Computed example of a mutant assay.
Amino acid sequence: MSLATNLRHELAATIGSQSWQAAVEVVPRELFLGDAVYRHEPEHGWVPVHRSDMSRDDWLALAYTDETWVTQIDGVMAEDATDPVALLRPTSSSTLPGLVVRMLEAAEIREGDKVLEIGTGTGYSTALMCQRLGNDAVTSIEYDPIVAGRAREAITAAGYAPTLVEGDGLYGYAENAEYDRLIATCSVRTIPQAWPQQVRAGGTITTPMSGWMGETAFAHLTVAGDGTARGRFLEDDLYFMTARSHLPPPRPPLVSGVGDARKSRIDPSTLQGGTALWVAQLAVPQAQVSWGGDATFVVDVGTGSRAETRQDLAGGWTVRQHGRVKLWDEVENAIETWQDAGQPHQSGFGLTVTRERQWVWLGEPGGPSWDLPA
């Protein structure tokens, strides 16, 4: 048995259900990493690691480590980079296989299903689905033409032939509809209107959802016969890169000491991450959050509204708000509603999607709710 085969079996034994383990044992992940990946080093940034600079055994060991390997930074493929890249944003990666399998399991994909994948990426997850479901059952869309071309080469080299589409996955792919499962390997702010229209009644949409404050929840929705969809957020805490058209705009410069002052009812450090930040994001979906020194800033790019909180020497916090939208009022109200409900994880919330609006609800569909941006 070859080293690659041994490593695939060892990796498969550590992740997922038996059905997906069988696929992991077969699909050669090394083909999907191309000729180089980026490795993050705190002192240098994103450092390109080229296959040509490693032994074959070392490259295979890297490929079959259950880790995410970034393959593109701000549009630059790792194989085209010669020097470390700092302060730029990863734009494509080979997600760690354990997380890929968790995503496929959460989508409840099984034999006989017809699947639309939004975000081909390197093509590794596409190949896993082809291995289990067959080529004709899998359609995958990739926005970036360079990433799409590399994925096509790798998928073909691995012996698979799904429908591969270069385009904007937010529009789905109506030509092969209807689908039993739609699965997104990128995060979205809202569910694109095309998605429920291309999934059969009783089919599902599984996607990470993130907002402009950077926190994510994992939605699993069932589509109804009228094209609406409803479901809950799952317990998995996972992160996928955000669809490029759903990324936040550049944040304006932070200005301190502006606006009417009052005492804050909540501790701003609550917004450092986790479900509390996600709830704040629901309350003010057009806003971004930043920290500077002892201050927390919330800025609405669209209206120019802003809030700034600082700790008082005598205890507590002072908030200053400026602009048409009282951002901190909205954040406080949402956080207090969540706290009164026992501070549940994102899985304590659900989502309803219609043609007219989308809203997240707490507890049950009739509970407190927040509209997602149109």
Rank of each mutant, 00 (worst) to 15 (best):
P90I: 13
P90R: 13
P90D: 10
T91G: 14
T91V: 14
S92K: 08
S92C: 11
S92Q: 11
S92P: 06
S93N: 09
S93K: 12
S93P: 02
T95C: 10
L96N: 12
L96C: 07
P97H: 10
P97R: 07
P97E: 04
P97W: 00
G98N: 00
G98D: 01
L99V: 14
L99D: 02
L99K: 03
L99S: 05
V100I: 15
V100C: 13
V100L: 15
V100S: 10
V100P: 04
V101W: 10
R102W: 01
R102L: 14
L104V: 12
L104M: 14
E105Q: 11
E105S: 09
E105P: 06
A106D: 08
A106N: 10
A106E: 07
A106M: 09
A106W: 03
A107R: 03
A107C: 08
A107G: 15
E108Q: 15
I109H: 06
I109E: 11
I109A: 12
R110N: 08
R110M: 14
D113F: 09
K114D: 04
V115N: 07
V115M: 02
L116E: 11
L116R: 01
L116W: 01
L116K: 00
E117T: 11
I118N: 13
I118C: 11
I118V: 15
I118H: 03
G119Y: 07
G119V: 02
G119K: 03
T120I: 03
T120Y: 10
G121E: 02
T122P: 02
T122N: 08
Y124P: 00
Y124R: 03
S125W: 01
S125M: 02
S125C: 08
S125Y: 01
